[in-house]
């Protein structure tokens, strides 16, 4: 919950709510981009960001994203975060 995880912004899903789709290690997750948005949201597409509990908090370069992800996998945190994302999706349906 404290470390965040790198994800790549792949689409803007809701301009008004500042929401975008991110690809996090192959998992698609909608995230809020308010904290990294300065200018048109489209400009974020293709960029990597550090995502904390569903909020993109900092734009990082691809190399940093890869390194961070590797460290998170080592710590077991990446797996844990992906699991939490899956749990979050189930919680919406009330099945978790």
């Amino acid at each position: 919950m404290c470390l965040g995880i790198p994800g790549r912004i792949v689409a803007i899903t809701d301009e008004a709510r500042l929401m975008a789709m991110a690809d996090v290690s192959g998992v698609k997750r909608e995230v809020n981009v308010a904290c990294i948005a300065d200018g048109p949201l489209e400009a974020l597409i293709g960029h990597w960001a550090l995502i904390h509990v569903g909020f993109a908090m900092s734009v990082i370069d691809e190399d940093e994203a890869a390194k961070t992800l590797e460290a998170l996998r080592d710590l077991g945190e990446a797996q844990e975060t992906l699991q939490q994302m899956a749990e979050g999706a189930r919680a919406l349906e009330g099945t978790a």
């Binding site: 569903g54 909020f55 939490q84 919680a91 009330g94």
Partner: peptide, 13 residues
Amino acid sequence: IRMVYSPLDALEI
């Protein structure tokens, strides 16, 4: 009690 990944999930619920 539901485990969520983000407060955004709670908003959606």
